[in-house]
Amino acid sequence: MELKNIFPDFNAMWIRWSAYEISDALNGRYIMPSTDATSLPYSSTENLQELLTDALNLGKAVYQKSDEVERECRAFVQKHGLLGLHKSDGSRVFPMKGGNISPARKEHSSQEYGEELSHFTAEFQKLYLHFLATRGELPEQLPKHLQSDLAMLTTQSIPSGLSYRLTAGFPPQMVWQPDDLIDVLRLAYGLAVTDTAAPLKVCKNCGTVYYNPHQKSEFCSVKCRNYFNVKVFREKR
């Protein structure tokens, strides 16, 4: 089933900003909106397939220790916003030493909210590790810290802020109201990776993760298919 058809009443408004930066603040390195950025509210479910594949490809870059990780992090948040990893509703804001408050403890919708880069990238790597496991591509000797990350998806209950309400009309409907983007992403991944149509593919040419429910699909684009065929033809000659 197509992701966009699963929850037609998915009310998942989220905040992204017009510009982001990665900088040192207080006790860590954070990714957060730039000081001159403007807020751009949008529905985080308007393109679940792109959200999902962007997340997996970022996870791949983190796992492979790419030199482009920070650039790809900025590209992701520019399109989708931060994940909402820290649910700070005001009652759990703890000042740090000196009276300062970590960006991760600020309200999600505020311009001062930020996520520590190591925590941010770890979420994508977890999804990608699980994706590799479903394909039988995990190395036999996986480092212990990565084993622990993978176990968080496979052996523990995944926390979720996927609340919903019921309409009073006829017929009544369930209107889903997720608290943050990470819940939407985890749900989209869970539904896609357990879909019998196996819509998550890896391009045979460039290795990019892409979404296509067609069973015979092997390439993320016509360009990659043509490039691969030319390469095979030249090798044969």
Rank of each mutant, 00 (worst) to 15 (best):
Tyr63Gln: 10
Met96Leu: 14
Val93Trp: 09
Leu56Cys: 04
Asn100Glu: 15
Asp89Ser: 15
Lys65Ser: 12
Arg74Ser: 11
Lys65Tyr: 10
Gly59Thr: 01
Lys60His: 06
Lys60Glu: 07
Asp67Phe: 12
Ala61Ser: 11
Glu72Trp: 13
Met96Ala: 14
Lys65Gln: 14
Ile101Gln: 07
Gly98Glu: 03
Gln78Ile: 08
Ala55Ile: 04
Gly84His: 00
Lys97Thr: 11
Leu85Pro: 01
Ser88His: 06
Asp89Tyr: 15
Met96Cys: 09
Gln64His: 14
Val62Ile: 04
Glu68Arg: 15
Gly90Leu: 05
Gly81Thr: 02
Glu70Met: 10
Gly99Asn: 03
Lys97Met: 13
Val93Cys: 09
Arg92Glu: 09
Asp67Met: 12
Ser91Cys: 11
Lys60Thr: 05
Gly99Ala: 05
Asn57Thr: 00
Asp67Arg: 15
His80Cys: 06
Gly59Asn: 03
Tyr63Leu: 10
Gly99Phe: 05
Leu85Ile: 02
Ser91His: 14
Ser91Arg: 14
Arg71Val: 12
Ser91Asn: 13
Leu56Trp: 05
Asp54Ala: 11
Pro95Ile: 03
Glu68Gly: 11
Asp89Arg: 15
Gly98Pro: 01
Gly59Ala: 06
Leu56Met: 03
Asp67Asn: 13
Glu68Asp: 14
Gly98Tyr: 01
Gln64Ile: 09
Glu72Pro: 09
Asn100Pro: 09
Ser88Arg: 08
Lys87Leu: 14
Leu83Pro: 00
Gly98Met: 01
Lys60Phe: 07
Ser66Asp: 04
Arg71Met: 13
Lys79His: 07
Val62Asp: 03
Arg71His: 13
Val77Ser: 08
Phe94Met: 13
Asp89Asn: 15
Met96Gln: 13
Cys73Met: 10
Arg74Trp: 11
Lys97Arg: 15
Lys60Asp: 03
Val62Leu: 08
Ala55His: 05
Lys65Asn: 12
Leu82Pro: 03
Arg92Leu: 10
Ala75Arg: 12
Leu82Thr: 01
Arg92Ser: 14
Tyr63Cys: 09
Val62Phe: 08
Ala55Arg: 04
Tyr63Pro: 04
Asp54Asn: 10
Phe76Pro: 02
Met96Pro: 07
Gly84Leu: 01
Leu56Asn: 03
Asn57Leu: 02
Ser91Trp: 14
Gln64Leu: 13
Asn57His: 04
His86Gly: 06
Val93Phe: 09
Arg92Ile: 08
Arg74Pro: 07
Lys65His: 13
Arg71Gly: 13
Tyr63Ile: 04
Lys65Met: 10
Glu72Val: 09
Phe76Cys: 05
Asp89Glu: 15
Pro95His: 08
Val77Lys: 08
Leu58Thr: 03
Ser91Met: 11
Asp67Ser: 14
Asp89Pro: 11
Ile101Asp: 03
Gly59Met: 04
Glu72Ala: 15
Gln64Ser: 12
Gly59Asp: 03
Gly90Glu: 05
Gly84Trp: 01
Lys60Gly: 07
Asn100Thr: 11
Leu56Lys: 05
Asn57Pro: 00
Gly99Tyr: 05
Lys65Gly: 09
Lys87Val: 12
Val77Cys: 07
Arg74Asn: 12
Ser66Leu: 07
